[in-house]
Amino acid sequence: MNRQLAFDLPAQVAFRRADFFASAANSEALAAIEHWADWPGGKMLLIGPSGSGKTHLAHVWAEAAGAQILNAIDLAQADLPDLGARPVVVEDAERIGGNRSAETAFFHLHNLLAGRGLLVTANAPPRDWGLCLPDLQSRLQAASLVALASPDDALLSAVLVKLFNDRQIVVPPNLISYLVARMDRSIAAARALVAELDALALALGRPVTRALATYLLDSAASE
């Protein structure tokens, strides 16, 4: 295929509540985030596989609660008294397992927050993180937990439609169901796939069609 010069202009990822699509895979988690004032002890664990929407929901809650977001692995270098003054989102908490300095910082932050609001995201429950501080593990395991499942067909279809619309790309009706049946089942995979199709269509000077998607997916599979 002959290719033309194309500019890679990444689309901005929107983490607003209006951009979050509810489905059977995430409805329980969404309800928990929207009713955060009812969290026992002011804390919640949000568990789910990569690409299931944890970060999006974390941003939705942070906007509603006025919370600061940071990655768990950065806790050891964080200014804990400053963090403890307002609600906090700790992302990718499973990454601190076995990192004593990060675990100790998390333990102190947990105590500093004292019901002000703490949302923790991870890909598995605390018992699976390999924590070395029993006090931290016991406190986290006592927190309420809500889980996200991998995106279902309805959610992936809605996300793909929006991603194409955001790029002002008109696609044939049969393309969405075709992509859903063949793609990796995550929101991140949907974003990557739409971006790759957009770039390929621009480079070839062709519209985004099922034939183009087949070419892209088959090329990726052969690699």
Results as ranks from 00 to 15, higher is better:
Ser138Ile: 13
Val90Ala: 02
Ala105Pro: 01
Ala102Ser: 11
Glu103Gln: 03
Leu133Lys: 12
Pro126Lys: 08
Arg139Trp: 05
Leu109Pro: 04
Leu113Cys: 07
Pro126Ser: 11
Asn99Ala: 04
Asp135Gln: 12
Leu113Val: 04
Arg100Gln: 08
Thr104Ala: 14
Gly97Asp: 00
Val146Pro: 12
Ser144Lys: 10
Leu136Glu: 13
Ala124Trp: 11
His108Phe: 03
Arg116Phe: 01
Arg100His: 08
Ala105Glu: 02
Gly98Tyr: 00
Leu140Ile: 12
Leu140Phe: 15
Arg116Ile: 07
Ala124His: 12
Gln137Gly: 15
Ala143Met: 14
Thr121Cys: 05
Glu91Phe: 01
Leu112Gly: 03
Pro87Asn: 05
Ala142Ile: 13
His108Gly: 05
Phe107Gly: 07
Arg127Gln: 15
Arg139Gln: 08
Leu113Asn: 05
Leu113Met: 04
Ala93Thr: 00
Pro87Gly: 03
Val88Thr: 07
Gln141Met: 15
Phe106Tyr: 08
Gly97Glu: 00
Arg95Phe: 00
Ile96Pro: 00
Ile96Asn: 03
Gln141Asp: 15
Asn99His: 05
Leu131Met: 14
Ala114Val: 02
Gly98Val: 01
Ala114Cys: 07
Leu145Lys: 11
Ser138Pro: 13
Pro87Val: 09
Leu140Val: 13
Gln141Trp: 07
Leu145Gly: 10
Thr121Ser: 09
Val120His: 10
Phe107Trp: 03
Asp135Arg: 11
Val90Asp: 01
Leu145Pro: 10
Asn123Gln: 15
Leu112His: 07
Ala149Asp: 14
Arg86Glu: 07
Val88Tyr: 04
Glu94Lys: 00
Val120Leu: 13
Ala114Tyr: 08
Glu91Gly: 05
Glu91Trp: 03
Asn123Ala: 15
Gly130His: 06
Glu103Cys: 01
Gln137Val: 13
Glu103Thr: 01
Asn123Asp: 15
Ala143Thr: 12
Glu91Thr: 11
Ala142Pro: 10
Leu140Tyr: 12
Leu119Met: 06
Arg116Lys: 10
Ala114Asn: 11
Ala93Ile: 02
Leu119His: 06
Asp135Met: 11
Ala102Pro: 08
Asp135Trp: 10
Arg95Ala: 05
Leu109Trp: 02
